[in-house]
Amino acid sequence: MTPITEVEGRRLPLSNLDKVLYPATGTTKGELLHYYAITAGVLLPHLHLRPVSFLRYPDGPDGQLFFTKNPPPGTPDWVMTAPVPRSDDPSARQVVIQDLPSLMWAANLVVEFHTPQWRSDAPAVADRLVFDLDPGSPATVVECCRVALRLRERLAEDGLVAYVKTSGAKGLHLLVPLVPTPSEEVSAYARRLAVEAEAELPSLVVHRMAKKLRPGKVFVDHSQNAAAKTTATPYTLRARRTPAVSTPVTWEEVEACTDPGQLVFLLEDVAPRVGMYGDLLAPLFDTRGAGSLP
Rank of each mutant, 00 (worst) to 15 (best):
residue 1 M to F: 09
residue 4 I to G: 04
residue 6 E to H: 08
residue 10 R to F: 01
residue 10 R to S: 12
residue 10 R to W: 01
residue 11 R to E: 14
residue 17 L to G: 06
residue 20 V to Q: 04
residue 23 P to F: 08
residue 23 P to Q: 09
residue 30 G to Y: 13
residue 31 E to A: 09
residue 40 A to W: 07
residue 42 V to H: 12
residue 45 P to F: 00
residue 49 L to N: 13
residue 51 P to F: 10
residue 52 V to A: 06
residue 54 F to G: 07
residue 56 R to I: 03
residue 64 Q to T: 06
residue 66 F to K: 02
residue 66 F to S: 06
residue 68 T to S: 14
residue 76 P to I: 00
residue 77 D to V: 02
residue 84 V to Y: 09
residue 96 V to C: 06
residue 103 L to H: 06
residue 103 L to R: 02
residue 106 A to Q: 03
residue 107 A to V: 02
residue 113 F to H: 14
residue 114 H to D: 07
residue 114 H to L: 07
residue 116 P to D: 03
residue 119 R to Q: 09
residue 125 V to H: 14
residue 125 V to G: 06
residue 129 L to E: 01
residue 136 G to Q: 12
residue 145 C to E: 08
residue 150 R to D: 08
residue 152 R to Q: 15
residue 156 A to I: 02
residue 156 A to E: 03
residue 168 G to C: 14
residue 172 L to R: 13
residue 175 L to F: 09
residue 177 P to D: 02
residue 182 P to H: 15
residue 185 E to A: 12
residue 186 V to W: 03
residue 187 S to T: 15
residue 189 Y to A: 04
residue 196 E to T: 01
residue 196 E to W: 15
residue 199 A to R: 10
residue 202 P to I: 02
residue 208 R to M: 13
residue 211 K to M: 15
residue 213 L to S: 04
residue 214 R to Q: 03
residue 216 G to S: 04
residue 216 G to D: 11
residue 221 D to K: 00
residue 221 D to E: 12
residue 230 T to D: 07
residue 230 T to W: 13
residue 231 T to S: 14
residue 232 A to V: 15
residue 237 L to M: 13
residue 239 A to R: 15
residue 245 V to F: 05
residue 247 T to R: 04
residue 248 P to Y: 10
residue 249 V to M: 09
residue 252 E to T: 09
residue 254 V to Q: 12
residue 261 G to I: 08
residue 262 Q to I: 05
residue 264 V to R: 02
residue 271 A to W: 15
residue 273 R to M: 13
residue 274 V to T: 10
residue 274 V to Y: 05
residue 281 L to H: 00
residue 288 R to V: 13
residue 288 R to W: 05
residue 289 G to H: 01
residue 289 G to E: 01
residue 291 G to V: 01
residue 293 L to G: 00
